[in-house]
Every structure is written in structure tokens, then in C-alpha cells.
Amino acid sequence: VNGVLYRGFLAGASRVFQPQNTTTREGVSQPTEFERSGSPESFAPWDTLGFQGRNFVAAGPSAEELEQINGRPAKEPIRVYAGLQTADTDEQRIAVVLSELQRTHAFDRKVLVIVPTTGTGWVNPVAARALELIYNGDSAMVGMQYSYLPSWISFLGDREKSMNSGRMMINAIHARWEQLPPEHRPELLLYGESLGSMAGQAAFGWLPDIARMGFTGVLWVGPPYASQLWRGLTVRRDPGTPEVQPRYDNGRTVRFSNAVDAGEIASDTDQPWEGTRVLFLQHPSDPIIWWSTDLLFSRPDWLVEPPAGDRTASMRWYPIITFWQVAADITNASSVPAGHGHNYGESMLDGWVAVAPPDGWTRDDTERVRIALQKTAAEDGPEN
């Protein structure tokens, strides 16, 4: 009743997962590029970035690789990051991030992508690489760690921490961006996956706030059921549209795609789409999205509707039992083939093309980048 078991669980989990944060994956080495946090010139020392932060800043395509793929001169992509050990508080870590953005001249790039991370600070390497390939390195991505814990534990135990951290980072970077003359600002993009999606949504009271703050495109992937903005849009969806793939305001600003394959994402996003674009990618079989305490005693709409996408037609709702079945699936949600569960790696490219295509972008360009992504193995594993 007094939260003893709850606090003990979080403390124990932190002791289990914290040691990995001090390690570095085999084959990962400190970057020397000026454009990366953790480099010798960086305000965020290499040994403070954490396991996932070091993976993020040390990976990705170089300008030389981008030139070979795209056939034209490229820029060195900017990757900015602050780990839990970079500073003592969120406010101090955000100050480091802002200094890093200034140091690397991130505000001079074509696009600036804010990335609220998952629990351990993980950034999907396919999402990062795809964006950099699309913009030929004329990009800057920025993330910040707020926990040692995997997303499923953070979600169950301390989701407010992720939401507060995401809100603070987005607001601080936006405030600095807003100080720039409009003609000299980069396009502002937002990306979040899993708990990172929920953290990003926390910065906005409602959908119009995203456009009001000047975001060009937003890509949110696998949002947890408790994500307030996603949930509000789903509940208020256009009449006659299913919960598993809703439409809101006929898709004027926000759209949803089951993201089973590239063709489906293109179909969901090919109608005229002016102004700010917000896209949710969500698999019908993703337990992160559909798990809720409501499952204990209420049959959800997605289990009343005909099965969509990759959800098995044999699934039924049973009081209490279904809640625990879906809860058990959460712990293994990412260890399934791409295009199912919580594995969205192959959908990132098409998501970016839908919400933030460069001027003159064509389907041939998309396929060229897709081939490059397929040739390059993911530079990081799933969040641990």
C-alpha cells in the first residue's frame, strides 16, 4: 500500500541494468568527427554518453558513404546526445545539448530532428540512417537519455519521468530554434518510438499545438496505449473507422498506418497532405500499443472489430486473462520478424518519406535508399 514493493522493484531493476550503461558494445569506438557528441571537441564527453548513446554517436553513414550512395556531394551528418552521466539533472543535460547544437552548427542544417529516446536512451539506428540518407547528410539529430531501464520497465514503473524529460527537451530546443530568423531556421522534425513516442507527445496539449510550434513533420512509432495525444485522437476518430487504423479529421494533419509494408504506408499517406504532417506507425500485433488495464474487464474495440493486418483471427477477449496475455507479450515484443509486434525497422524509410520528403523526391529515390539500407546491417541491436 505504501509503495514499498514498487520502489524496491525499480531500485532492483536499476541495479541490474545500470552496469551495462558503463560498457561499450564491441566494435564501437569514439568518433573523431567534429559533428558528433563524444568527439574530442564535444561538451558531452564520450565516457558519459552511456551504452546506447555511444552506439548512436559512433554509428551512421559518413559524408563519403552518402556521396557514393546518392551520387552528389554530401555533408557529415550531425548527431548530438547527452547521457545520464553527462550532467546531474535534466536541466543541466539540456544545457549541454543546446551547447552541442550550437557547437556543431546544427541550426544551419536543412532539418533538425528532435528524438526523445526510449528507456535506456536507445535511438533506432535504421530510423537515424534512413533520415540521413534521405537528406544526404544535411541533417542534425539530437537525443538525451533519462533512464537506465528498458522501455517496458520504465513504462510500467516510471512513465512520468520519460514524459517530463521529453517535454523539457522539446520545449528547450524549440525555444532556441524560435529565436532564429525564420529564413535561417532548419525544418523542425520530431521522431519517437515506443516510450520515446509517448515522451514526445507529452510536449503538446493537442494536435494544433504541433503546427503552432512550427514542426514540419512528426513520425511516431509504436505509441504505448497510455500516450495521451494518440489515445485522444483514437477515441475521437472519424465515425466508422476502426480503432486499429483510425482516421481523424479525414487525415488533414494526422494519419495512421498499420505499416505492414511500404505499399500500405504509401496508400495511407498518398492523398493530398498539406502543412504539418503527423504519422503514427502501429502494428495490429504490437502489444505495446494495445496493452491497458482496461483489458481486465472491458472488451476493446480492436477485439470487436474484424482482425486487421497481422493480428490472428483466433484471438478472443477474456476478462483478466487477455490482460495478462498481452502483458506477457510486451517483454518479447521486439524479438519478432520485422513488420510485426514492436519491430518497425523496415518501415522507417517510408515513414520519413511520408512526413518529410525533400523537394523533388521521387519513388526511385526511395528505392535507392531502400537498397542502401538493406545492404547495411543495423549498426545496433534492439533496446536491451
Rank of each mutant, 00 (worst) to 15 (best):
P73A: 14
I170W: 03
S39W: 06
L66R: 06
G275M: 05
Y81C: 01
F107Y: 15
L98H: 04
A128T: 15
G50R: 11
D301L: 09
A266E: 13
T86G: 05
P382R: 10
A199H: 09
G60P: 04
M163C: 13
D249Y: 03
E183Q: 14
S314V: 11
G351S: 04
L131G: 08
I170Y: 05
L281C: 04
E132I: 01
P357C: 01
W290C: 00
W273N: 00
L349V: 00
I134A: 09
W122M: 14
K75H: 13
L281M: 07
S154L: 14
E67S: 15
Q20M: 12
M168V: 00
T216L: 14
V218I: 05
I320D: 10
A74V: 00
V336E: 12
F215Q: 00
R231L: 08
R252M: 10
V126F: 01
I330D: 05
G339A: 08
I210Y: 04
L131A: 15
M168H: 03
Q228M: 07
V97S: 04
N250C: 05
I289V: 15
F323M: 11
L5W: 06
S334P: 02
V28R: 08
G263C: 06
L303R: 01
L98V: 11
E64S: 15
V4W: 13
L84D: 04
G351T: 01
T276P: 02
G8T: 10
V97C: 02
M348N: 12
G157C: 13
G196W: 02
F323Q: 09
G27T: 07
P31N: 11
N332R: 15
G8E: 09
D270C: 12
Q52K: 14
T234K: 10
P239Q: 00
V235T: 04
G222A: 15
I288R: 11
S42H: 03
W220H: 12
Q325Y: 02
D359F: 05
R255Q: 03
T22A: 15
L303C: 01
Y6E: 15
A13S: 14
W302D: 03
I321F: 08
A58F: 12
G196S: 07
G157K: 11
S62E: 11
G232M: 07
M348Y: 15
T241C: 03
A266S: 12
G200Y: 05
R212Y: 09
I114F: 09
V111F: 03
A262H: 08
I330H: 10
G50D: 10
S285Y: 00
W361A: 14
Q68M: 13
A327M: 12
E35N: 10
L180A: 02
G360T: 06
A356T: 05
W46N: 12
P307Y: 02
